[in-house]
Design a protein around this nucleic acid. Structure first.
Lengths: 333, 333
DNA sequence: ATGAAAGCGCTAACAA
DNA sequence: TTGTTAGCGCTTTCAT
């Protein structure tokens, strides 16, 4: 393409300089080049540019669930800080599946993204990839999830144990004593929510009953299946803390399919404040924290790391709080 | 990197051939190379590869609303057909904004995507870009929206006029006579839904009342604002066809905020079958069509176009049908 | 103020 | 079966 631009009788170097706003270019030449570009509709080739610069101005983002508004909101916040700096986001979904995640990470590695924001789908898998990418100089931020302790990267998280506590204590305050939990998969993030649940139980002298805990992968379908299991227990729990909102919605479905009512027969509290959670048949009480802050902080850390790769890893915690709606019953207890 | 692989005393060509599974390579050499790659964790540089091949194996996707499950479901379907062929999707959101769309299209052009799937946000803007990209040999599929008639590309659509008819006739069958419409923006797709609404009106001898039509951009917030406008009319409409589900949800919010009931005071029908539409406080009656089929067909057409750029443009229509839930009241009327 | 030359990591003829 | 050579489109010293 620049060949063609050399039709103006200038060198490719000159054109390149014009495009990069180099100062050492004559005004007339610059004008000529700009004019030519304007009406011939030339677009620089980012691929070639990336190759020479060994920099793609692209940030890979790997999230576990594209259908969950939580991650999409974070994404939007990241994009807002990163786009003005000339970076683009390359979005990948792992579907809470370590293998899919691996293949996405490999693709991102081959594409030579400058940075990476990931909410890992698994506690141990793919750690090699993450480590390799860091070693290669790819800036890494771990987002929402806190596994892979050996990876020394920035982390933007919420206080998951507190999430579990807030949710469970709300239920307890409402007078429930037979409390179930639908847990997430075997990652530390889910584990902490579970621990928060147990914290609250023991803080209030309630016995822990193993049979009242079911497990899912954080996806809606699993929440439904898990709730069906809990409904088999007798006596069944009168209230359930579900580890995230998509599963909570699945759980609600299971409750209604069983002909029971929320919250009269069973109270439900989720986490993550999914979109339209306030518009549901029974508005979902949930624990929430700022997606905007998570996305913004993650993006800022990423950019900082890109600017100065020696920045020591930091750990930012976005505080959660309870959002009371209708799915646990009337008042604040 | 291949320099380093030439540590094995072979040429880069040889390594390249191994990676591309060329047949003319000795078994022992192949094995040695593969072994080296395996334990040195080498990843080919897709940027360089793209440069030589002038092919990125990337398909750009521009959708208007990342928070709308409709598009995300289509995306998932596309990914499922395209990924096994070695293509990756590069996702961009226009937020129903022509300027944002323009900047995303420019970025995709610079990145030299091989193909493009777009649901255009505007009837005329950015047509130059689309045309230029086609001229450059980028395979283009227009998805869900049918503007830019001058662009001769594949199109995967639903029958939008029929969408409007189905929705409106449902309302009429239920006995409503004062029918409002919350329309989408000035694109043909929205216009057709509006025409379907008018078709149904006149087919049943109902007068069209201009004051009962409000307009939004397809985003939820606009649906809410538009419904507030319609509620000012007196008498207000007893039923409203909203051009898509996100706006329908916004509209529901406005109705409830005004202290009215759905469907008793006002019936609502949407279009697009948004996720959790069945779980809303009042389950949303909507017109639906297969996102899976749309995504699959779009992806297949894209691949075909990539394989044979001379393929004449085709036009596939995915038929819509009514999905009755509760937001318009009891029975089938 | 402008340009020549080298090189980013890869693939594709074409030779050997 | 393997290697040599020549680019892909760009940026970047370093001369001029």
């Amino acid at each position: 393409m620049k060949q063609i631009a050399a039709e103006l009788g200038v060198s490719v170097t000159t054109v390149s300089k014009v495009l990069n706003k180099a100062p050492d270019i004559g005004d007339v030449t610059r004008a000529r080049v700009l004019a030519y570009i304007a009406d011939h509709g030339y677009r620089p080739n980012a691929v070639a540019r990336s190759l020479t610069l060994s920099r793609t101005s692209t940030i890979g983002v790997v999230i576990p669930d594209l259908m969950h508004s939580f991650f999409v909101e974070i994404l939007a916040a990241m994009d807002a800080v990163v786009a003005p700096k000339g970076y683009r986001l390359l979005l990948c979904a792992s579907s809470e599946n370590a293998e899919k995640e691996r293949s996405e990470l490999e693709a991102l590695a081959e594409r030579r993204v400058d940075g990476l924001v990931v909410a890992p789908a698994h506690a141990t898998d793919n750690e090699d990839h993450l480590a390799t990418m860091m070693k290669r100089g790819v800036a890494l931020v771990m987002m929402d999830r806190d596994d892979h302790p050996a990876i020394a990267c920035h982390r933007v998280l919420t206080d998951d144990r507190q999430v579990g506590r807030l949710a469970t204590e709300h239920l307890i305050a409402l007078g429930h004593t037979r409390l179930g939990h639908i847990a997430g998969p075997a990652i530390i993030h889910a584990r902490r929510r579970y621990e928060g649940y147990r914290d609250a139980l023991s803080a209030h002298g309630l016995a822990f009953d193993d049979s009242l805990v079911a497990e899912g992968t954080f996806l809606q379908a699993d929440g439904e299946a898990a709730m069906r299991v809990l409904l088999q227990r007798s006596p069944r729990p009168s209230a359930v803390f579900v580890a995230n909102d998509p599963m909570a919605i699945g759980a609600m479905k299971a409750v209604w399919d069983a002909g029971l009512r929320i919250p009269e027969d069973i109270a439900i509290v989720g986490a993550g404040n999914i979109i339209h959670g306030d518009m549901l048949r029974v508005p979902l009480t949930t624990v929430t924290w700022s997606r905007h802050e998570m996305g913004t902080r993650a993006a800022e850390l990423l950019l900082q790391q890109l600017a100065d790769p020696t920045t020591p890893p930091s750990r930012v915690i976005v505080e959660p709080h309870l959002l009371v709606r209708a799915s646990c019953g009337a008042g604040q207890g």
